[in-house]
């Protein structure tokens, strides 16, 4: 069942991009379209990153191995949106004005942690293929644990960029914290695990 529905990840993950394009065509991106598309791509990247982190614990505790191939696809889509988000910042918002971009980077911690998150995701996207997985062997798993750091950095990024009311980033942060806690060995052992029938 799950294996047959797995292709749905592609249209679903591309839907926010399609909506963005649609809203662009009907001029529905607010009076400040660049900020709107920055926020939307950032938010989508974060949600996809969280979904990527959901796969492993769900499979572990509910025995749903058919979900596992989704992890790579969700992760790559998260990276796609994060890259769009970063490109919008550099190419549309700041229009390749490197002087201003460097000023932002040196002045604002939220930009610095955002960039850190993207730089951590980059090697994961590159080494997501079967070939790299084989080549890296045991080290592959260790490398891909960087997603924990990246997701935490994105939460910091979000926390530092909202104006005063931090409840929304805190809610996402709680989600990430839960998903990381489920991976701690004592928690993992303590939680029930469905054995294969």
């Amino acid at each position: 069942m799950i294996a047959r529905a797995r292709w749905l990840v592609h249209p679903l993950a591309l839907l926010p991009l399609a909506l963005l394009f649609y809203d662009f065509l009907i001029d529905n991106l607010t009076a400040n379209p660049i900020q709107e598309i920055t926020q939307r791509t950032g938010k989508t990247a974060l949600i996809l990153l969280i979904l990527t982190l959901v796969v492993t614990p769900v499979n572990r505790h509910f025995r749903l191995p058919d979900l596992v191939p989704l992890r790579k696809r969700l992760g790559l889509y998260a990276f796609l949106y994060a890259t769009l988000h970063l490109s919008i910042f550099v190419g549309l918002d700041y229009f390749f004005d490197w002087e201003l971009i460097l000023l932002e980077l040196s002045e604002k911690l939220y930009v610095l942690v955002g960039l850190t998150a993207w730089l951590l995701l980059l090697p994961l996207a590159v080494t997501s293929t079967k070939g790299w997985q084989r080549r890296l062997g045991k080290r592959w798993k260790g490398l891909h644990r960087l997603i924990y750091v990246a997701a935490s950095a994105v939460i910091l990024h979000f926390l530092w960029l909202v104006k005063s009311d931090i409840r929304e980033p805190l809610a996402y942060g709680a989600g990430v914290a839960l998903l990381l806690t489920l991976r701690l060995p004592p928690v993992r052992r303590w939680l029930p695990r469905r054995t294969p029938e």
């Binding site: 660049i34 549309l92 918002d93 700041y94 229009f95 201003l100 000023l103 530092w160």
Partner: peptide
């Protein structure tokens, strides 16, 4: 005088593209 979030050195005029 910088702000931790938004650029105060530059701004986007609503309806325009470049800062």
């Amino acid at each position: 005088v910088p702000h931790p979030r938004w650029s105060q050195a530059s701004e986007r005029r609503i309806g325009e593209f470049r800062r």
